[in-house]
């Protein structure tokens, strides 16, 4: 386990943390615990209340949707520097996918209820954290749109 000082350095060096002001980083770090899990660990589950908001420091988390007849489909992997469990701070606070560590993962995890309380109480934290989360979600939306086009499929007839 890393000490708080090196965790602070890791947060500052990560994509998510690099753009947060010092106050937000400190506040985030005070709430966070370092978590290490083995491959196969389920971090969040589709449809269930999201218990934690996580920043991946190392390893890979696969976000999966269950499709009857097709099983678990991975639609995105969360890589170091990126977040999972954003639904912890977006109503109705339920996970939109199942997050599974596909290799050993080390993450900074903040309890969902505590994070919501902190964001309500600390306007400065909210003002810097929400845009960064939105940026992460918007990037996924952007990527998902391109995936939706299924560009590598070759011939796709427009049927509208």
């Amino acid at each position: 386990m890393a000490d708080r000082r090196s965790l602070a350095a890791e947060l500052a060096a990560s994509w998510f943390g690099s753009d947060l002001p010092p106050h937000a980083r400190t506040a985030f770090l005070e709430l966070a615990v370092e978590r290490e899990v083995g491959a196969g660990t389920e971090m969040v589950r589709e449809g269930q209340p999201t218990t934690g908001f996580g920043l991946v420091l190392s390893g890979r988390v696969a976000l999966r949707l269950h499709v009857p007849g097709r099983g678990q489909v991975t639609i995105l992997t969360v890589e170091p520097g990126d977040i999972y469990g954003w639904s912890a701070i977006v109503p109705p606070y339920r996970s939109t996918s199942t997050g599974v560590a596909v290799e050993p993962v080390r993450a900074l995890v903040v309890d969902a209820v505590a994070l919501r309380a902190a964001l309500r109480a600390d306007d400065a934290l909210a003002a810097s954290l929400y845009p960064r989360v939105l940026e992460a979600v918007a990037r996924r939306l952007d990527g998902t749109r391109l995936q939706l086009l299924d560009l590598f499929a070759g011939q796709v007839e427009a049927s509208w």
Binding site: W15, A62, R64, G71, T77, R139, D150
Partner: peptide, 21 residues
């Protein structure tokens, strides 16, 4: 890759996500 089954342990997502961060 754009999408994968549970047996794929590599990255999933659009190719630009490999270097935009």
């Amino acid at each position: 890759v754009d999408r994968a089954g549970a047996d794929w342990l590599g990255r999933v997502g659009v190719v630009t996500h490999l270097f935009d961060h």
